[in-house]
């Protein structure tokens, strides 16, 4: 089909770039994924994005697996593979080579400056992820209450998130959201 190759190239380009800008892990990259997939490329709606993020969270495996779902939504099986490889490839090569040289700078002042300088940026990015996901997921007051309750339990207790997901899933199943 005409255009499929274009989508794959676009996917590869976006995620390879994102791979190198993802400071603070996959969850910190969620706002950029949302911007590209929903606002820029219209591969999915806001609601579908929130659904896919939820599926990634309740699936086993690292959080980065959200890119596989986005890739599939955009361009099927090939899209899933391309997006995953693009998101992990560049950073893996980088990690492979840096892993061999970096440790000799363990005590270096500039390394510590980079390390502590990136912390507030990661926090700002994850806070933005939280806002974007909440706006996409909370379509009525029950959903908002579920988000609020999960945040409170997650912050103040050590309850396994599995229980919170189970409860939230049941509330959704009952048709309240």
């Amino acid at each position: 089909m005409k255009g499929d190759g274009d989508i794959l190239l676009t996917l590869a380009g976006h995620f390879a770039l994102l791979s190198l800008f993802a400071i603070g892990g996959a969850n910190a990259a969620v706002p950029e994924m949302h911007r590209v997939a929903v606002e820029l490329r219209h591969w999915m709606t806001d609601r579908q994005f929130a659904d896919l993020f939820a599926i990634a969270q309740v699936s086993p495996g690292p959080n980065v697996i959200i890119v596989t779902l986005i890739g599939y939504q955009a361009a099927g099986l090939a899209g899933a593979l391309v997006a995953t490889l693009a998101m992990c490839g560049p950073t893996c090569v980088f990690a492979f080579y840096m892993g061999r040289t970096w440790e000799r700078f363990r005590e270096a002042r500039w390394r510590n400056a980079i390390q502590s300088g990136l912390v507030p940026i990661s926090i700002g990015l994850i806070a933005a992820s939280a806002l974007i996901l909440a706006l996409a997921a909370d379509r009525n007051w029950v959903a908002g209450a579920v988000t609020f309750a999960t945040a409170a339990f997650g912050y103040w207790t050590r309850l396994n998130p599995l229980w919170m997901f189970t409860a939230a899933g049941l509330i959704g199943l009952a048709g309240y959201i």
Binding site: V146, T147, I171
Partner: peptide, 10 residues
Amino acid sequence: SGLAAAAAGL
């Protein structure tokens, strides 16, 4: 929808 609301909360 329920899972998405919980994921945002976490």
